[in-house]
Design a protein around this nucleic acid. Sequence first.
DNA 1: ATGGTGGGCGCCCCA
Length: 272
Amino acid sequence: MPLTIATWNINSVRLRQDLVAKLISEHAPDVVCLQETKCPNDAFPTKIFEKLGYGQIAINGQKGYHGVAVLSRRPLQEVVARPFCDMGDSRHIAVDVQGSTGRSVRIHNFYVPAGGDEPDPAINPKFDHKLRFLDEMIAWFGADTPTVAPADGAIILGDLNIAPLEEDVWSHKKLLKVVSHTPVETDGLERVRKALDWVDVVRRDIPPPEKLYTWWSYRSKDWDAADKGRRLDHVWLTPGLSDACDKVEVLREARGWDRPSDHVPIIVRLDI
DNA sequence: ATGGTGGGCGCCCCA
């Protein structure tokens, strides 16, 4: 039995718990990693997920903003919820999940800061925070490799809020000075990737020049026709684990669901 | 043309 893992910025887990249930009923991923849950831990809607068989739940939430969670129907151990940038933000949780063969993978579920509007750290503290967050990811993954990525393999996934490639945005030229696609961000994200030679399995299987997006703004009148999207959500695997990944899906149709998130889920299948 | 929409929370923050 393969292990399937979904990641989705849900933009309020309480408001969209039925959409998570729809994802579960239609795709039955073993593990669902959520970002922007916007929900304190004691208010997390665990019951609906327990009823669906996803009784293994790890959450790092806060009131009003941010928040990450992992739902699983396979054995799960919470490893750490690491604070970044001394901000008290809930933007990371790491868990170990066991595949049916007994091999366990470590999943780092991230919600990287969006960074505000002005791409200048000197005048925009949110952009400065985003760049410092990337620096901390690089330092952590470089210095603490056995914890971050055990021998059996590890995954970074979630809303990284950066579209790294030219084909990850609707217009490379128009977005070069727009937060999410500026060179300082795409260079920073590439440095994170190189820290452990992570494999971007989504782009391995759906390579450029095909355009690929996971987010479309709510402000666009007709998101599908205009298609002014960005690929802000990612799934990276350590090299040894990437060989076991035999399928990736970006569920574009979820952007058209009733009262949707502005992000869509990505699902990967691991033959472990 | 510098808006537009959507969420949480509470009279405004963030994406």
